[in-house]
């Protein structure tokens, strides 16, 4: 795996994120989001984590993106716009650029200390043992959170009709 492959996949993710930023039509926005999520999955693969990449594709591209599409299609209006053209805002751009600079500066030392990705990191059994061992409380909490979210979605969308 060369740096070229990394930057190619990263470029796909960045292009997707850029499309989300500038897209005027909702369907293009969703397509950009899908490209971004697939690019992220590709980067996970690049970092030798196929389990995470597969989960990303199943959960995000198959789940969250379908949810987005479903919501958009259910609410389809005459004008299929994601709002007016996005105007370039110097203030907002400088806030985002400032955050980027701060993050990269803060993580520079860590990056200098990092070593290249090595093989043999994809230990699916190790991840499973961690999830049901050290991370069991968090795992259970996430299950509870998903249940609460399910009830909340039902209450928000079905409660409307009852009123």
């Amino acid at each position: 795996m060369s740096a070229v492959s990394f930057w190619l996949i990263a470029l796909v993710a960045i292009a997707g994120a850029w499309t989300v930023l500038v897209a005027r039509e909702t369907i293009r926005l969703i397509a950009g989001l899908g490209t971004f999520l697939l690019g992220i999955a590709g980067l996970y693969l690049r970092f030798a984590m196929p389990l995470l990449a597969a989960s990303q594709v199943f959960l995000y591209v198959g789940g969250v993106l379908a949810l987005f599409l479903f919501a958009i299609m259910a609410l389809r209006r005459d004008e299929d716009r994601a709002g007016p053209a996005v105007r370039f805002s110097v203030v907002h751009a400088s806030v985002a650029a400032g955050i980027f600079a701060v993050l990269v500066t803060a993580l520079r030392d860590v990056g200098a200390a990092s070593v290249d990705v090595t093989a043999g990191q994809d230990a699916v059994d190790a991840v499973g043992a961690l999830l049901l061992g050290r991370f069991l409380p968090a795992f259970e909490l996430v299950g509870g959170l998903l249940f609460v979210a399910l009830v909340a979605v039902l209450a928000i969308s079905a409660g409307e009709d009852r009123r």
């Binding site: 990263a10 994601a82 996005v86 955050i99």
Partner: peptide
């Protein structure tokens, strides 16, 4: 290091989107 730069860049792009987009779908994305 390049991975860190890409991750921070994606985060900043998303932040810019949250700040500038005025449609709820776009903000969620």
């Amino acid at each position: 290091m390049s991975g860190i730069v890409v991750a921070c860049l994606l985060f900043s792009l998303g932040l810019y989107g949250v700040l500038t987009r005025r449609e709820i779908v776009a903000v969620l994305a």
